[in-house]
């Protein structure tokens, strides 16, 4: 793999390969010495045009556990916020000898533009671009599901037949898109549940069922996994739905809906959560919730991705 830009083009074997490497990385996390010398002498740049302390920290920990040098280059307070172009930033990072660039950007496609630009030769990891994709989030979600479902026998397995319900702002969610493509590749079945204003135009052509009524969907599908998407503050004022109260009542995973789930269903959320809006506190803190595991698994997945992109001979992969 040269870059990780989306899950849509990820082949099944490559995806499972990454999940398996993440299993190895996760075992390292349980050792006394949590660090591997693998990427010694490599430089990873976290290029964040959008604030995200969680994702940036997760990549930073992952890179450091592999002994890479990490440079955090965030837009706020840097030349980037003063109008420096992506091109100039990329060329600057190239001149500093970056081997990998982890990029978070509000513009969809910015990581792909960077990867195919020729401005920089580094491996590019998409850490979330606009409303396009967030591939490492989808990988860590798939990893989390695979572990909960297959336990110690997870290695080499896919998610064949697993039913995943993704609830909320699908329209603006890069997490939903990346999850959809990856889950389809791994054999899972996806149902989106959202108010019609938050379902993307043309989503009927996607490999997912689309439902509006959460209670009916939960009762009929009885999903293995319920994943709640975060409602962004700015959507609340943009007339996609009348009020947050109405949203929580119709599409929030409240206590009642939690109790109605199968006892072995798992509850996921990419974080940060709006407790009381898309998910109740009881649901977030229940034994069925994987919210904390997702964070821990994020480090393992990102180690696996950085390892796959940066450890080998770059020439041999192009």
């Amino acid at each position: 793999m040269r870059h990780l830009l989306s899950t849509r083009d990820l082949l099944r074997d490559d995806a499972i390969g990454l999940l398996d490497i993440a299993e190895d990385m996760s075992e390292v996390q349980n050792r006394e010495v949590k660090k591997l010398p693998t990427l010694r002498g490599k430089t990873v740049v976290n290029l964040f045009f959008e604030d995200s302390t969680r994702t940036r920290t997760s990549f930073e920990v992952a890179a450091k556990r592999l002994s890479a040098d990490v440079i955090n280059f965030s837009a706020k307070g840097s030349s980037v916020s003063k109008g420096e172009s992506l091109k100039d930033t990329a060329q600057t990072l190239a001149a500093m000898g970056a081997d990998g660039v982890v990029i978070r950007h509000s513009a969809s496609g910015a990581p792909q533009v960077l990867a195919q630009s020729g401005w920089i030769d580094a491996g590019v990891v998409n850490a979330g671009d606009g409303t396009h994709e967030h591939p490492t989030q989808a990988l860590l979600d798939a990893f989390t599901m695979r572990r909960r479902i297959h336990g110690d026998a997870a290695r080499g397995r896919d998610l064949d037949g697993v039913s995943v319900m993704i609830v909320g702002d699908v329209l603006h969610s890069r997490v939903a898109r990346s999850n959809l493509w990856l889950l389809e590749t791994l054999g899972a079945h996806v149902t989106f549940v959202a108010p019609a204003t938050l379902v993307p135009v043309g989503a009927s052509t996607w490999p997912a069922d689309i439902r509006y009524d959460l209670d009916a969907a939960l009762a009929e599908v009885r999903p293995d996994v319920v994943m709640l998407l975060r409602i962004q503050q700015e959507r609340m004022n943009a007339a996609f739905f009348p009020t947050t109260r109405e949203y929580a009542r119709q599409w929030g995973l409240d206590d009642e809906r939690l109790l109605a789930l199968r006892p072995d269903s798992i509850v996921m959320h990419p974080g940060p959560m709006n407790r009381g809006l898309e998910i109740s506190s009881r649901a977030a803190d229940s034994a069925q919730s994987t919210v904390i595991e997702q964070v821990a698994n994020g480090v393992s997945i990102r180690m696996a991705v950085l390892y796959s992109l940066l450890s080998g001979d770059r020439e041999a992969r192009s």
Partner: peptide, 15 residues
């Protein structure tokens, strides 16, 4: 153009 492709690419649709 707004449609399945704009939704996939995450680019704001132009209906």
């Amino acid at each position: 153009n707004e449609g399945a492709l704009s939704s996939e690419l995450g680019l704001k649709g132009w209906p």
